[in-house]
Amino acid sequence: MDTATEGEKVETPLNGEGLLSRLDPRVKIVLFLVLAWTVALAGNLLQVFAFLPLALLFYATAYRKTATILKLLLFADFFLLFVVLTQLFLGSPYEGVLIFFKSTVIVLFSLLLLTTSSVFDLLHALHHLKVPNKLLQITFFFYRYLFTVKDQLQLAEKSAKSRGFIPKTSIQTYKTYAYFMGNLLLKSYFKSENVYKALISRGFKGYFPVFRHFELGKLDVIFALFTIIYWGVAVWRFYL
């Protein structure tokens, strides 16, 4: 069942925003991994604060999206809130504060370095970074049909509602949700069969040809050098 909305996309939150979106995603992914892991391994607040200026500098390039960024930082993660609050009131307040800043800095890096590129560019870059092809194929198909699946769920919900369904705590409600899922599994099962047939009939051999290739530009090199030097100094001053 192909719906008209199939082409619609779910995109990364900061796709195309600011200076960082113009950089080579390969460079950004590698730098992100270096920075995120360094902060993740931090043992005290000072080490985390060493990277805060860099994170804020990155943020400045997308300041027009402040509302989006704040929303994702503060409200997206219920688990973080849970950990921070339980630490503040039932555990060690210092741990709570440390975790809050570690998480905030890493998420800022993730938002500004990863989600400023489109999903497709990120997948393409992962291909160049030698992520196994089969895994990327799954990722690609997942992304390609995510919206279709979401759409189908909404239609089933609408259908149930139009027959008087109101969600509440009852076996009937859980059964209805199970039917939605069964229905999604079934439709996706058949959809995947069709996808597969379409692929092999077009001579698909298990890898996607890529039309556009990344080229490392001057800006990429400058950005990478700057970030690595910052990282080196911060690690030397605060970690070693």
């Binding site: 799954i138 990722t139 690609f140 997942f142 769920l153 859980y174 999604l184 099962y189 995947s192 597969y196």
Partner: peptide, 26 residues
């Protein structure tokens, strides 16, 4: 997984992703 199981895994993964976003009342 190989062949047809690649798109199948991906599509089912999308189903689990979407289904885990449902708020189930309790």
């Amino acid at each position: 997984i190989n062949g047809r199981k690649i798109p199948r895994t991906a599509l089912l993964s999308a189903v689990f992703f979407v289904a885990s976003l449902i708020h189930v009342p309790i």
